[in-house]
Amino acid sequence: MQDERPLDPSRRNFFKSGAAAVTLTLAPGVTVMAFGGTAASAQGADAGKRWGLLIDVNKCSKDCEACVTACKDENGWEGKGKAEQNAQWIRKVTLKDKSTGRESSLPVMCQHCEQPPCVDVCPTGASFKRKDGIVLVDKHICIGCRYCMMACPFKARSFVHEPVNNQKTFAPRGKGTVESCTLCVHRIDAGRIPACVEACDATGNGAMTFGDLNDPESEISKALTAYPSVALRDDLDLNPGVRYANL
């Protein structure tokens, strides 16, 4: 009976490691076949990378909501209930300097910390950091305790208060579990940029730069070396993957 079990997670890497077709013989008469796709997409998350965002607050226009709308459309989290209970993966925040009165506007989403408090406090390990630095929720083991929401300094997480259907295939979400910005992980895995960045570029503002923080040649790394930038709540030393310039 035992040998008949087709797969176990420890075989994961072996099973899907290459681009070629892999055939596994598990028991006499039982064969599982797995077909790899292109080498690039089969590779998946790369531990050598650390994905990040740089947001230039000067270029972010106060009335523009393009990133928020794009995220809603892409990931399908538009809420229809009470405003306080609706999910908000990304939001536009307006800041007014208390001493000078200067106003600025910027988007806030999951900051994809290197030391994420939400991952530390999660009792089941549902809140996790992918090896390329993206912080996600495994909704299969999330019990909906909301401790991560208590622990997040950025209010980046939302609890799904109502039953949901008609989700996007790549953005499953459901009642009783917690969710947040995924940095459009499904797009990153396909070699594309997050929907918010794409939408921001399309408006011509170009306030958002996406890229690999570990690669000194990437656009984002060059910009970070050239201009001053800050992390939100840098007093907490969480080393977020999202940075803000001209704040």
Partner: peptide, 8 residues
């Protein structure tokens, strides 16, 4: 966990 999306 691995970001491998062309699974069967």
């Amino acid at each position: 966990y691995e970001g491998i999306r062309d699974t069967d």
